[in-house]
Design a protein around this nucleic acid. Structure first.
Lengths: 149, 149
DNA sequence: ATATAACTTAAAGTCAACTTTAAGTCAAGC
DNA sequence: GCTTGACTTAAAGTTGACTTTAAGTTATAT
């Protein structure tokens, strides 16, 4: 069973031009062509495209994804190299998670800050707020800032 | 106590040109200038720059950050609007976290996949692997793929 | 007074990841 | 056989976030 680029793009929810771009950049070395030169996607290509999507979501740049795809084409000799790439990207995701957690704490604090200001009708309420009224989980944040300034 | 753009850039670990760019784009409406036209950063500006950094890490585009900064300048009348922006961005971070968790599971699976392939010396080991030998937490992943194809 | 280092602006350049355009080809239905 | 819609390529354009360059100004140290 084959799919045209338009059908595949719809399945993946991307623009056909995006798939052509990926192909041009060497990210889709697996796609076959008809006699007339038209791309024929197979069901098993989905697995590669899913892999591509996963690496993209992990923040891997396209040229590294191409690298990974090229390794895959070369077969079992590149297993360790691919494992290394995956492990590197896995660590990158762990780092991103840590980063997002810090960011979330800051946004939680700002949310509380503006909720409090909204209730008081003015941001000035925070200038006179005693430390004890700041929820505990935000105190470390605020402490760091005051030390820096 | 005032800082030049170079000093402030060093404190924030960014290039001075980045701060000039942010200023040009209206993200730093708070910076004052000397008679000669040189930017004079104050200690309290740090709080705005920290806010900017937080919103950037949360993935907010610069024009929305400018919007937020403009609101801030307008004082207490825009508290609800700013709260709304923060809550929107907080939700976006939660979504990103969810996304990263899915991505991590896929990478964990791929890591296991290549570790197993490495031990066996070939990826072919996965073609004949019975479902029971796939670690449980990956089975839902694999099941979804087989249903799709 | 002058050298020098760090500042200033405006404009152009860069990079990644696409998207759009132009000109043309392929495939399916009538 | 012809129309039509989806495909093809190459090349140019877009967007966001900077960075670099060029030409000039300010501040400081001698």
């Amino acid at each position: 069973m084959f799919y045209t680029i338009g059908e595949m793009a719809q399945k993946l929810n991307v623009a056909p031009s995006t798939l052509r771009y990926y192909d041009k950049e060497g990210l889709l070395p697996f796609v076959e062509r008809s006699n007339g030169g038209i791309r024929m996607f197979k069901d098993e290509d989905m697995e590669w495209l899913r892999m591509l999507g996963c690496l993209k979501k992990a923040g891997m740049p396209l040229r590294e994804i191409r690298n990974f795809m090229e390794c895959s084409r070369q077969g079992d000799a590149t297993i360790s190299q691919r494992l290394e790439l995956i492990e590197k990207q896995r660590q990158s995701v762990l780092d991103q998670q840590k980063q997002l957690e810090d960011t979330l704490l800051m946004l939680d604090y700002k949310q509380w800050y503006y909720q409090t200001a909204q209730a008081a009708g003015t941001c000035a309420v925070h200038e006179t707020m005693p430390l004890e009224e700041i929820p505990e989980r935000f105190r470390s944040l605020v402490a760091v800032w005051e030390a820096e300034e």
